[in-house]
Simulated scan of single mutants.
Amino acid sequence: MVEIRELDVNRLETAANMLKAIAHPMRIAILKHLEGGKKLTVTQIHELLGIEQSTTSHHLGILRDKGVLCSKREGKNTYYYLKFEVLSQIVDCLETCTCE
């Protein structure tokens, strides 16, 4: 019989919050642009997505607050990047699962 280790409720809650934060088309697109260790500014991301800079900032804030992204200030710019590169596998899985 397979032994099931005890589930850590706090870790499950953190994971669920991260998945909720990712569960938006624009946020998935942001993660896609940050794959491979890329670090991008709000301006670069908003230009890539073709959406308002304020909307981009809103989405980045949610992703950062839920532990999906990190940010680093360099001079006048703040660069955003994946906190855990393995998160890009979620995007890859979604792409595979939505192919027809």
Rank of each mutant, 00 (worst) to 15 (best):
V42N: 07
S57L: 03
R73K: 14
T55K: 08
C99P: 02
T78N: 11
T41P: 00
L40N: 05
M1A: 03
Q53K: 14
S57Q: 06
K39F: 08
Y80T: 01
M1Y: 08
G50S: 09
K20R: 13
L31E: 08
F84K: 06
T14H: 05
V68L: 06
S71A: 15
I51N: 09
E35N: 02
H33Q: 11
G37Y: 05
D92W: 05
E74A: 10
Q44G: 05
C97Y: 13
N77F: 11
Y80C: 01
E13W: 00
C99F: 13
V9R: 07
I4L: 15
T96H: 12
A21I: 04
I22E: 03
V91I: 15
K20L: 01
L60V: 06
L34K: 01
L34H: 01
G75N: 14
T55M: 12
K20N: 04
G37I: 01
L63S: 03
E47D: 12
L69E: 09
H24R: 08
I22K: 07
E52Y: 14
K38F: 07
Y80D: 02
K66A: 12
M26D: 14
I28K: 12
L94Y: 11
L94F: 13
L40Y: 00
T41G: 03
T14A: 05
D8L: 04
L7H: 03
L40P: 00
T41R: 05
H33W: 08
K72H: 08
V2P: 00
E47I: 02
L12P: 00
T56M: 10
C70K: 09
V86K: 13
T43S: 06
E74R: 08
Q44P: 01
E52M: 14
I90G: 04
H46M: 11
H58I: 01
E85M: 01
E52H: 14
G75K: 15
Y81R: 00
V2G: 01
A16T: 04
T96V: 14
A23T: 03
N17W: 10
D92T: 04
G67S: 11
V68A: 04
T56V: 12
I62M: 13
E85D: 12
R64I: 00
A29W: 06
D65Y: 14
E52I: 02
F84T: 03
I51L: 14
A23F: 03
V86F: 15
A16E: 13
T43D: 11
E95Q: 14
L87P: 00
D8G: 00
T98N: 01
S88C: 08
E74W: 02
S71M: 15
Y80Q: 04
C97L: 15
T96G: 06
H24I: 06
L12S: 02
L34Y: 01
I45T: 10
H24A: 07
A16D: 04
S71R: 15
K38W: 08
H46P: 00
I22D: 04
Q89M: 04
L63I: 03
A15T: 04
H33Y: 12
T98D: 02
H24V: 05
G61H: 05
T78C: 09
K32R: 15
H33G: 03
A23Y: 12
G75I: 11
T14Q: 05
E85W: 02
N10G: 00
N17D: 12
L40K: 06
Q44F: 07
